[in-house]
Design a protein around this nucleic acid. Structure first.
Lengths: 120, 120
DNA sequence: ATAATACATTCCCATATAGGAATACGTCAA
DNA sequence: TTGACGTATTCCTATATGGGAATGTATTAT
């Protein structure tokens, strides 16, 4: 089974950085596609394709205005993400003190070099 | 360009539902791989592969205990996700009142049927 | 040593991109 | 009507899966 479709849910949809930028941009007020193209320096077809994914996952709303399409972020659809991540809030508060001790001693960079096995 | 690697960042890593379940399971206390296999009803190789992605993105920490590997969620790595979603919190609070009016009237289901063009 | 246990990795494959280029569609202006 | 404008879609392609099956590796037990 391949990776789930980007349209399967908000989690998959926002995994793409450009789509997050678009959502940021459209949060304050509705905007036509052309504004997104100009502001984010993306090709128009690319923006339209991202918007399609965002539409299908309910992350944006659209409205026609003459020949323009006005998009706007639907914050409500981001809520599930917020709520899932919130459940971990208490953990990072707890871990901070413990982790810092080791971090200051080891001064490691990056998450993991992935050396589980010693063998080559 | 294909989709970004699941290991490119936390956003991509948690897009997979099973990985979120694993993170939930490992949040309270460290657990050996076998426990995850049993609890989530997944194949062992599958779990190991998901854990690899989670390790590479820093979402879990590992520690060897004899022949077992003890994994635990590193909540700190989930923080960027929490913070990004938090920036939308004020928007859904605002939108709630406005949206509800329409929702109660239209009683629409699903996000979008995607009928932008009328032509066939 | 040898076997058993607990994990990790590799191989194979169907599927879903994301970007680039080209093109189709819907609406308004002249 | 015809043309221009603003968007959306299609076609093409390289790439990254995620699951299943088989196998490799590290560690402890006998």
């Amino acid at each position: 089974m391949p990776r789930a479709a980007t349209t399967s849910d908000a989690f998959n949809a926002v995994a793409e950085p450009r789509r997050r930028e678009i959502l940021n941009f459209l949060a304050l007020q509705e905007r036509p596609v052309g504004d997104i193209v100009d502001s984010l320096n993306l090709e128009q077809p690319s923006v339209s394709k991202h918007l399609r994914v965002l539409r299908q996952t309910g992350l944006v709303n659209v409205r026609r205005d003459g020949r323009r399409m006005l998009y706007r972020t639907n914050a409500e659809a981001i809520r599930p993400l917020y709520e899932w991540t919130s459940t971990f809030e208490r953990f990072w508060r707890h871990q901070l003190s413990r982790i810092k001790k080791r971090a200051e001693a080891k001064e490691d960079d990056g998450p993991e070099s992935d050396p589980i096995y010693k063998g080559e």
